[in-house]
Design a protein around this nucleic acid. Sequence first.
DNA 1: ATGAAAGCGCTAACAG
DNA 2: CTGTTAGCGCTTTCAT
Lengths: 330, 330
Amino acid sequence: MRARRPTIVDVAREAGVSVATVSRLINGDEKVNADYTKRIRAAIDLLGYQPDERARQLRRGRTQTLGATVRSIAEPHPVLRAVDGEARALGLSMIVMSTGDDPEREREAVMAMCRRRVDGILIEPVAESLAYLQPEIDLGLVVVAFDRPAGDVALDTVLSDNRGGIRQAFDHLTALGHRRIAYIGDDERIYTGHERAEAVRGHLRDLGESVDGMVHAGPVHTETVAAALDVLHRLPVPPTALITGNAATTLEAVRCLGTAFGSTTLVGFDDFALVDLLPAAFTVIAQDEARISETILELFRDRLARPTAPVRTVVVPTALIVRGRQEALT
Amino acid sequence: MRARRPTIVDVAREAGVSVATVSRLINGDEKVNADYTKRIRAAIDLLGYQPDERARQLRRGRTQTLGATVRSIAEPHPVLRAVDGEARALGLSMIVMSTGDDPEREREAVMAMCRRRVDGILIEPVAESLAYLQPEIDLGLVVVAFDRPAGDVALDTVLSDNRGGIRQAFDHLTALGHRRIAYIGDDERIYTGHERAEAVRGHLRDLGESVDGMVHAGPVHTETVAAALDVLHRLPVPPTALITGNAATTLEAVRCLGTAFGSTTLVGFDDFALVDLLPAAFTVIAQDEARISETILELFRDRLARPTAPVRTVVVPTALIVRGRQEALT
DNA sequence: ATGAAAGCGCTAACAG
DNA sequence: CTGTTAGCGCTTTCAT
């Protein structure tokens, strides 16, 4: 026979006070008699009482909880780490769910959070449409999108300057004398994939270079990247430099290039740990994760304070981190 | 003026039925009149009703939620990924919190989960003592430890066969003719660090080799690993092979060895993505993450079913993944 | 400063 | 099959 979980009533009885007094003490009300305070504390310890968060939240309305959806809970997520810390400092709990880049799972996760009445949701949008969130937003849910814009619903949004990052890479490479600059990256149905590929096309045109066969955007796998590299290799005028559109592409490219890698001029979008362990160092376009997470929480707080203010989109600059030999093209 | 969130009462009124009927429908009770069903569905859509999970859980008792603590939410966690999927299949939500390897944060996270009345907690123990969990366990909380044993409280536990993994590495290396086998790894205050270092010492003794200066266990940083490598290098009879105690150590070792890396016989504990991108391939002792996560959930379910059964510890074998050139020592 | 009592939104007896 | 109603454990007026 297992003991019943002690409730606030048990504590009150044990301490010989009313539940209201216990509640006050638990919630840090200063004006509880010192003697009562001691007796209540003792009762709590004796009974091993832990307030039921569900009941408190139900009664209070607010949950003091921030939900977040990310692609995968099993992969590194610097933005989230920073947000996690700052949220704790604000007295918010966080609950994280993964979407696996599946719109259906994203929706399930988001609605599950709504049913738990989280105060806000940070979302890295996967689905085309987030319209189903509108009623929740009208009811006071605060939603901040990051990494990708929401599309069909007005949301505060934090984005990296994808086009600016590509510009930095082009500036860097053209300064070294490159003009034939190729690109391999993510599917253009994904916002970041589109922005980056499109930026590359623009710069190639500005340089008066042909775009034909130079920009490869699609799902990233070993085979697709290998195929793209092969196409580039066979071009009448092959590229002298390559930009990879995200970390996964960079890794696949390094893998495919193998020993040829060291002699390729590469700039990768996204910095990541271990880059320095690869056979040769290379330059990267780094996203400013710290600033991104700060901005996310700033938008969240502002929205909480002024629910009717117009939505904002903040674009955070990227930084070019130059690594490896910087040989001018001869 | 923001609209109030609709409750089950609003839905009932709108549909012209009782709240009980709405509740029944929501909870998948089959025997609700077809006409009512239609009207209730319409009311739910019209109002944008989302049941309040806090209230349901409070009323029902069980939360159908599984909590998990991990070292970092920002780092890859294969075990968790698998558990996440299986938990969903079981109809359980998961809530994950990170400990940052800090016993204090671990305790806070665990107690926060208890206050939310999660049905179970999967814990990768950090703190020396988990005694504070005993009252919760007595109250019916199911706790499963993984990766490290709990120490002072009886818990179902899933462990990798750390000593077995080291044995596999020694078998492999001695078959190649190595006898002077060194080790660099994690602090021995951490369970896995201790097990692995101690296993290495045992095997060296069995081989009749001196252990002096061959086993380096401590915090893993670039400097400490470099220092350890330096010591090994200066030994009267330097080692011919090196075992690294975890992924972090492996990476630091690779980093420190630099170009000398290719000519070192290395076996690393833990397999990880990107190993094949390093300048030279090497053999690893891989933990069986799939089997570990299955076992975790199995223990969880069994405990839920039979709360008083004796606790079990399951040790999951490791696998040696041989990579790179396998030159016998000459 | 403390207590009594009214709910928060929901589910589960219990009647009918 | 449906409705009525008593709580789940807590916070928060409203009195005192």
